[in-house]
């Protein structure tokens, strides 16, 4: 799913769980935690510009686009770092960051393929998409932003 939708979903879930005031207070960490994970797509997109634009048009999932952050071993290391930080840094901040990072992975697993998540130990591509057609993926990417913005507006105001 696209980065803007990830941020909107993260803010909506955080507003429901922690309340509007806390979500507004921690808006920047929420946005950062929801979107930073997508930076690992950049090296592939810069190297293969034409293929990337074609995959946006057709909605075809690319097996090589996922970088280092979308791997299980990185998630494990991140969780251990957050666990150590939990005892020294603001607990709400750590909880919000962890929640939004794993929400990103959860939504990605639902909408697109989970590419080689167990790399370097296993190169299999996992896919749990229920409606896994390319057209559906493009529709989700295009339609999710106004829909989520509307839901967020209803929840916050």
């Amino acid at each position: 799913m696209n980065t803007v939708s990830h941020v909107l979903i993260g803010f909506t879930v955080s507003a429901v769980i922690f309340g509007h005031e806390t979500a507004r207070e921690y808006a920047l960490p929420i946005a950062a935690a929801s979107s930073v994970m997508d930076l690992d797509h950049l090296p592939y997109i810069v190297k293969h510009v034409r293929e990337s634009f074609r995959s946006i048009e057709t909605g075809a999932a690319n097996a090589h686009i996922s970088g280092v952050f979308h791997k299980e071993i990185t998630q494990m290391i991140f969780l251990i770092i957050m666990l150590i930080a939990y005892f020294f840094v603001d607990k709400t901040l750590i909880t919000i960051i962890t929640l939004n990072v794993f929400l990103h992975f959860g939504i990605d697993a639902l909408v697109s393929n989970s590419d080689r998540v167990f790399a370097p130990f296993s190169n299999h591509i996992l896919s749990i998409r229920l409606l896994g057609t390319h057209k559906f993926r493009v529709a989700i990417d295009a339609g999710s932003i106004p829909l989520l913005a509307m839901i967020l507006w209803f929840i916050v105001y």
């Binding site: 969780l79 909880t95 962890t98 929640l99 794993f102 992975f105 959860g106 697993a109 996992l126 749990i128």
Partner: peptide, 14 residues
């Protein structure tokens, strides 16, 4: 294995 770990992380991070 993967979906269970992600869902547990979402659930228990809070």
């Amino acid at each position: 294995l993967y979906t269970d770990r992600v869902s547990e992380a979402i659930m228990f991070s809070v």
